[in-house]
Design a protein around this nucleic acid. Sequence first.
RNA 1: GGAGUCGUAGCUCAGCCGGGAUGAGCGUUCGCCUCACACGCGAGAGGUCAUGGGUUCGAUCCCCAUCGGCUCCACCA
Length: 903
Amino acid sequence: MKELEKTYDASAIEDRIYHTWEQEGYFGARPDPEKKPYTIVMPPPNITGQLHMGHAMDETLQDILIRYRRMQGYEALWVPGTDHASIATEAKVVEAMREEGLTKEMLGREGFLKRAFDWKDKYGNRIVSQLKKLGSSCDWSRERFTMDEGCSEAVLTVFKKLYDEGLIYRGNRMVNWCPYCNTSISDAEVEYESKPGKFWHLLYPVKETGEMLELATTRPETMLGDTAVAVNPEDPRYSHLKGCHAVLPLLNKEIPVVFDEHADMEKGTGVVKITPAHDPNDFEVGNRHNLPRVRILTYDGRMCGADDVREAQELLESGRAAEGEPEVLDCGKYAGLPALEARKEILKDLEAGGYLKETEEIQHDVGVCYRCHHVIEPMVSKQWFVRMQPLAEPAIRAVEEDRIRFVPERFKKTYLNWMNNTRDWCISRQLWWGHRIPAWYCEDCGETIVEKSAPAVCPKCGSTHLTQDPDTLDTWFSSALWPFSTLGWPEETEDLKYFYPTDTLVTGYDIIGFWVSRMIFSGLAYTGKEPFHTVYIHGLVRDSEGRKMSKSLGNGIDPLEVIDRYGADALRMSLLVGNAPGNDMRFYYERVEACRNFANKIWNAARFIMMNLEKADAAEVRTEDLAIEDRWILSRANRLAKEVTENLDRYELGIALSKVYDFAWDEFCDWYIEMVKPRLREEDAVTRNAAVFTLKKVLVTVLKLLHPYIPFVTEEIFTTLQDEEKTIMRSAWPVYDPALDFPAEEDAVEKIKDLVREIRAVRTGMEVPPGRKAQVYVVAKDEATRKIFLRSESFFRVLSYASNVTVLAEKTEEIPESAVSCLTAAAQAYLPLEELLDLEKERARLNKEKERLLSELKRSDGMLNNPRFTERAPEKKIHEEQEKREKYQTMLDQVEERLKLLS
RNA sequence: GGAGUCGUAGCUCAGCCGGGAUGAGCGUUCGCCUCACACGCGAGAGGUCAUGGGUUCGAUCCCCAUCGGCUCCACCA
C-alpha cells in the first residue's frame, strides 16, 4: 500500500494519470450492441483560439456528463475536434504574412492555403493539448477537423443536395461588406461602435414645384447612387408631391419621389434619400418600388469609374450575371477616390452649388468589422443563399414538440425567437480559407454547374472553359453538419448507426442562433433525425467585476495558469459550484482555493482511512455487526447516491455536486470519522472490522460520485486504495441498494448529533476550556432513546468532551442542582461544572431559548388554529405542522421546568 | 422597438416550479496546532428575500406595475 503525502499536490499527479488513461485506451468508444450508446460531440474550438475560461466550463460540463454515463455502463463517446474558423484564421494568417511583407495575392491561392494549413497544424495542436490538461476524456482517436476529408465530403454533399432541391440559390443581395478584408460578413460579424460623426442636411430641388426638399444623411457620397427620395404616405407635408420628381444635384438626374413606410415622419424632415445599392433599408424600398440599383463603390471601397462600368458590361454580356445585378455608375471626377475622400469633394461641390444646408455634429453607432474594425459598407453583391423557410419549419416543430429539449427551458424561447425571424442565410464568403463553393461557370454559355467535383465539360454547350466560383462557405455551414459529419455521414457507417443521433449538446447561450439552430435544421433535413435530444446551455464566465473576459480589456484569466497553481480538479469544480444552469458566473480565485481545499479534504480523509486499513480485515462484514453510526452513514451514502443520480439525470450538475460536497465534508469527515475513531483503537476485532469496512465503502462511494467532477484526485486515491480495480473511470456508478436503507438509525444519530451540538454550544457559551472534560448525565424519558445513547456511548463521550456518560430515565438526585443544562427535544444533558456555572448567564440563555420557542409556537398555532388552513391545506402539511408544534411544546416544558429550578 | 434575465448575509451566488430563510463558499468574531487535514476543528454574529399592488388559508417563489443592473435580436436615413 502506497502512502499518501500529507497535502494533496495536483501538479504531481495529473499529467501522469492523464497519460495512463490515454495509454490504456479508457477514453475510447466502439459500437457495442450489448450496451446503450451515449454521445456528445464537442463544440469545436477555433484552431486560432487559446483555451479560455469559457472553453474550460464548456469542456468540464461535457466531461462530467460523459464520465457519469461511462460509469453507468453506457458506451460513452465524446467526439473531439476543431473548427477552421474561416475569417478569424484567414485574418491571422494574413496578418502574419504581412509581417513578412507578403500578401495573399503574392502567394496565390495554393501558396496561401499551404500556409494556412501549417498554421492549423501548429495551433490546432495547441488547443488539443490544453484540453487534455483539463482532464477531458474524449476519444482522441476520433479527433476531427471541419476541413478534413470527411467533413468536406459532407459539406459538398449538402451543398449539391440543397442546390438540386432549389434551396440554395445565387442572388444579388445587400450584404455587409468589409472593404479591408474584402469579403462580405454576416450580420453577426458586424459590431457597432459609437463614434462622433456628422449629419449633412442636403437640399434636393423638386422638378415640378421648384421647392427644395431637405433631407439628412451621414454618407453624402452615396447620393450619386440615389434613385429616389422617399416620404411617408401618411405625411401631410408632402402629400402634394405625388408623381413628382427630385433633381439629383451634381448629376442633374431626375429621380422619383416615392411614398413608403420606411420614411419616418418623426425623424428629421421626414424625407429620405434612397440608395438601393448601398443601404439595406433602401434596398428594400427599392424592391418595393421597382427602383434601379446604382452601384457607385468598388468592392475595395473606391468610387467606380469607366473601367468598372466596362467590367460590369462584360459580365452582363457573358450571361453570368445573376438576376438583379446593379448598374454601375462612372463617378467621373470622383472615380477612383476612396469613399471618404470622395465625400469631401462631393460636399465641397454640393456646398458650391448651394445644396448643402447645414452640418450637424452627432454621435452615432457605426457598423464595423469584428476582425479589423474597419467601417462596413453595405453593398449589393452577388452571393449564395440558403432558402431558410422550408428548412426552419421542421426545426421549429422539433423544439415546439419537445423532441429537442433545452436545459434550462427558457432558452427554448431564445431559439424559437431566432428561428421564427430567420431570413435567408448568406453562405458565401470572399475568403480563401474554407470550403470552396462547388460551383463552376461556363465561360462560353454562362451555365452554372454545381457538382461535388470539377466537371470536365459544360453539360450544356460542351465547352471546357469552366471556372470555379472563387468564394468559400461560411464557417457555420460546416459546423452545422458537425453532429453527423464527424460520425461518417454521408456514408452509412456503423458509427453513424450506433452513435447517431447524439444525446446532449453542451454550449453557451451566445451561439444558439448561429450554431444550435443550424445543426437542428441540418440534422432534420439531411439525416431525417434530430441531431440530439437535449441542449444543455451554460452561461459565460466573467471576471470578478462581472465583465466579459476579453483580450481588449486584458482581464482574461488563463485556465492553464489556474491549473498550474491549484490543479485541474479545483478549476473544474470551481466552474460549477454555486451556479445554476444558464447563468453567467464570475471567476474568483477564492472559489478555486475553496475547491482545492475540498480536494485536499478528501485526500486527507482517504489518507486517514488508509492508515487504518491494516488494522482490520474490511473485506466483508455481516450486517448485524454494523454499529448504529455505521448504519447511519451507509444509509445516508446510499440515499445520496440515489439523489445525485436523479440530479444528474435532470442535468442539475451543480446541485448534485453540492450534495456530495456537504455529505463528504460535513457528515462523513466531521461526524462519521470522528465518531468511529475510538473504535479503531478497540481490542474487539468485530467492531474494528465494521468500522473500517464502512469507512472504506463510504469513501469509495464518495469517490465515485465525485469522479466526474474531480477526476484526478479521485483516481489517485481510488487506485491507491483498491487492489482489484485498475481505474475509477470505468468502475461502476453507485446505485441505490434497499438493503442499506436504515431510517431508524438515521433518526437515532440525528438525536445524538442534536445533543452533541447543544453540549458544545453550551460549553463554548460558558467558556469551558476545550481540554476540560466533564461528567455528562443524559436524561431521556423514552426508553428507546436511552438505548440509543447507551449504544453510542463510545463516540458520544468523545464528541461531547465527556469524562464519563451516565444515561438516566429521570433527572435524579444524582445530578447536582448546579449542573449546566443542555436541552433538546429527544434528550437533555446535565454537566456538573459548579465552578463555572454562572446562574445569570444560564437563566439568560434559557430565557432566550424560551422566547424563541414561544414565537415558534405562536406561528405554529396561528396556522393550526386557522380553519381555512386545516380545511384546505394538504393532509401532509398539516401533519408536519402538528409534529413541529409538539416538539416545540416538549422543549418549552423542559426550559420552563429548568427555569423554575433556577429561580 | 422586440425578447430574455437578474435584484436573497459585507462579497459572490444557491434555494428542489406556493408551506417555518438552522442556505453555501469567501470574509468576519471567539476559542483551539484534539494522534487525516491550519488547504484544518469547534462555537457564533450577520438577511424588512429591490419597491408597490394582486391571486391564495399561506408568497422569496405565481400575476401585474415601478425602480435599478445585465444580455440577445432588430434598428441606428
